[in-house]
Design a protein around this nucleic acid. Structure first.
Length: 713
DNA sequence: TCGGGCAAGT
């Protein structure tokens, strides 16, 4: 085929301008010039040119070559496949589809390319559409089609029909690529049993096939099976690779199986996969889930370039181990290293803030959430709801909740739990109704939130009704649910009913009995308490919580002799009451206060002065010390001094002295005592500021002389 | 023209 020189030059100049605008490469232009001038062209002539276009990611280049092909009189069947391939590799899937649609006949390779690219671009719907179209065009899928298309199905039945096709074609057992894709497909649908059945039928098993099953077990929480599959893989002589290690280690972490975890760590080093980032990340996660923080920090140190996933694992793992402050430092280090956080990272960081009730720090993270446009995402969104809930800001939590892209069980539970903790029981129950109306399946946290909502709002009758209806509807009730009911009934003084409820539980645990015991303490029922004490100490001899509760009960009923006996018992057992502590955040710093410890703080003078001033003003407004809160037999004036130095009072005085703007937020490790509760109520009036106190069980919002718990806690 | 992995919330 001959072309004259002038046509060639026009083509070259057109390509040249296209390529120059795209930053094109001189070599492409030069070669096209050669083609145009020599004018002898075959499909092979164009191949290196298309390759150049792919390297340059130049769609204009492809289009020009296509035009030249047409001019050379090439039939589209011949050139189409190459053009589709080149367009796909340039990321121009739309153009590839256009060329494809114009082809009168398509080779199966072209069908397969398009299907697999749609999947790569996460356009599964279009991939399935192509697959259906292919069948309608009487093109039989081959091993390539079937090894990619299973990823795309969102409907199990359609996927199973294609599984049938694979069986008929003999590709299910005969081709390990198809087998792996099938295992992966069943795993993604949560059908590990079916995945295992497919695996067993595949004739020649390889590492990918078995890894796909291990991943399935691991992701479904069938961790024992995952470790088992890993071991049998070794027995069969199939060598694991970095992906295998990465997934089996997660299962070891879930099982807190340090010994297998360490063994696998050893294997990893031996086979040289200990430098792959994926396996390293899983190793980090494994050690964190096994609470071996130091080992995990060592692993992290050895990772040269931690990515988003590695950092996320570190941040959320540290939070999991109660090392929130370190987690937040690492989160900041990650940002400093310019590694972008995602919704997983942010929800980890937010959990760190919410565990510590660090409102200001949390708001900074909220800023980052907004910066990355993840405030409507359900994961980071739930993190924000939890944060604001745990900082006592249900209104802010609700604002986040109302803007979420998608309302699911978790986000609803988080919001309900926030309301429940803050004593907004009615609001929580309204959301429960919404959940039922939406047809969402409640889970154990939902049930707990409903019961807690009733408990913290004094809705005892409603709580009992809900509990009965859960029981009638065969909802699986855990010890936590029972403990919540026992607390509710106990606090309402319905101690016998609470005991009957515990007797219903098959294996009542320590917490249940202790919860009932605290009900006895509240209602000063010494007789029942002593009976329970004997029972508890049989199950758990020397249980610290029980002895403290008993000692406090004896103190509050004036049985000082018994108090002394209890204390000496506890000393004999080397038990020491954990100290009451409070925390307050000022200018994003967290300050700790311990009861009775006024002098270790560098600003103790100022705190003491402020405290005295607040005390005087509170007394002017009618505050009187409630000495029944002192569980030690001492002089009246000493009792007063002891009360004045409760940790929450110190923390509030510090916050007032530092002139904290807005609400004062206190976090406490134990429950607020009656004396502090009435003092804080009055102080909120004195300083005309809201004081929010999160104790070990719930929130108290002190505003203008009253508390949101309506004195029921 | 094809297949597998690591991180998350109540």
């Amino acid at each position: 085929m001959r072309r004259d020189r002038s046509t060639g030059l026009i083509v070259v100049s057109r390509i040249s301008s296209f390529l120059t605008s795209k930053g094109g490469n001189f070599r492409i232009q030069f070669r096209l010039l050669c083609i145009a001038s020599n004018s002898l062209t075959t499909t092979h002539t164009f191949s290196p040119l298309l390759k150049q276009c792919i390297d340059e990611k130049s769609l204009p280049g492809i289009k020009t070559i296509q035009a030249q092909m047409i001019k050379s009189g090439f039939p589209i069947q011949l050139s189409g496949s190459k053009l589709v391939d080149a367009s796909l590799k340039c990321g121009e899937i739309g153009y590839a589809r256009k060329v494809f649609d114009e082809m009168p006949e398509r080779h199966i390779v072209t069908w397969n390319s398009l299907i697999s690219w749609f999947i790569k671009c996460r356009r599964s719907k279009e991939a399935v559409e192509m697959y259906r179209l292919m069948i309608m065009n009487s093109v039989l899928p081959d091993e390539y089609t079937l090894s990619s298309v299973f990823k795309a199905f969102s409907d199990l039945r359609e996927a199973q029909r294609s599984h049938g096709v694979a069986v008929v074609l003999g590709l299910e057992v005969g081709n390990v690529f198809v087998g792996s894709a099938l295992v992966d497909m069943y795993v993604k649908f949560g059908k590990t049993r079916e995945a295992k059945l497919v695996l067993d039928r595949v004739e020649e098993k390889d590492v990918v096939l078995i890894t796909a099953l291990i991943v399935g077990y691991s992701q479904k929480g069938e961790d024992v099976e995952a470790v088992k599959a890993f071991k049998s893989m070794l027995v069969e002589g199939v060598q694991p690779n970095e992906y295998t290690y990465a997934s089996v280690l997660i299962s070891c972490g879930n099982l807190k199986d340090v010994s297998n975890g360490k063994l696998i760590h050893g294997l990893m080093i031996k086979s040289g996969f200990d430098s792959a980032l994926g396996s390293q990340t899983s190793l980090l996660t494994m050690y964190l889930r096994c609470s071996l923080v130091d080992d995990s920090l060592w692993i992290f140190k050895c990772i040269e370039y931690p990515n988003q996933v590695t950092w996320t694992s570190l941040v959320s793992g540290l939070v999991l181990n109660g090392r929130e402050e370190m987690a937040l430092i690492e989160f900041r280090n990650m940002m400093r290293d310019s590694v972008k956080p995602n919704s997983f990272t942010l929800s980890g960081a937010l959990r760190g803030c919410s565990n510590l009730a660090m409102f200001e720090e949390g708001r900074q993270v909220h800023g980052i959430v907004l910066k990355y446009g993840l405030d409507r995402d359900k994961y980071s969104g739930s993190g924000l709801i939890d944060l604001y809930g745990k900082c006592g800001c249900s209104d802010m939590a609700r604002l986040v909740f109302d803007t979420l892209n998608e309302v699911d069980v978790i986000s609803l539970n988080t919001m309900m739990y926030s309301y429940a903790q803050n004593g907004l029981g009615r609001e929580a129950l309204e959301l429960f109704e919404r959940m039922v109306n939406l047809g969402l399946q409640a889970n154990d946290v939902t049930v707990l939130s409903v019961l807690l909502a009733c408990n913290n709002s004094g809705l005892v009758d409603e709580g009992c009704e809900f509990f009965d209806s859960f029981r009638k509807n065969k909802v699986v009730l855990t010890n936590d649910h029972y403990a919540c009911m026992v607390d509710m009934l106990g606090r309402a003084g319905r101690l016998e009913e609470a005991e009957l409820l515990i007797n219903e539980v098959v294996n009542p645990d320590l917490v249940l009995w202790r919860t009932l015991l605290s009900g006895c303490k509240l209602h000063r029922n010494v007789e029942m308490a002593e009976r329970l004490k004997r029972k508890i100490l049989e199950i758990a001899p020397g249980d610290e919580g029980t002895l403290i509760l008993m000692s406090n009960l004896y103190a509050s009923t004036g049985r000082w002799k018994r108090v002394i006996e209890m204390k000496s018992d506890m000393r004999g057992m080397k038990l020491k009451k954990s100290p009451a502590m409070s925390w307050v955040e000022v200018d994003r710093e967290r300050y700790t206060f311990m009861a009775g410890d006024l002098f270790s703080h560098p600003n103790s003078d100022q705190i003491f002065e402020t405290l005295e001033e607040l005390m005087k003003k509170a007394k002017d407004l009618g505050y009187v010390e409630d000495k029944s809160c002192v569980f030690q037999d001492m002089e009246e004036s000493a009792k007063e001094r002891s009360l004045h130095q409760h940790s929450e009072k110190l923390a509030i005085a510090f916050a007032v002295w530092r002139n904290v703007g807005g609400s004062i937020r206190i976090l406490k490790n134990l429950r607020v005592c009656v004396d502090c509760h009435s003092w804080i109520k009055i102080v909120s009036r004195v300083i005309k500021r809201e004081i929010i106190c999160r104790d070990s069980k719930r929130f108290h919002h002190f505003r203008d002389g009253s508390c949101s718990c309506r004195d029921y806690w």
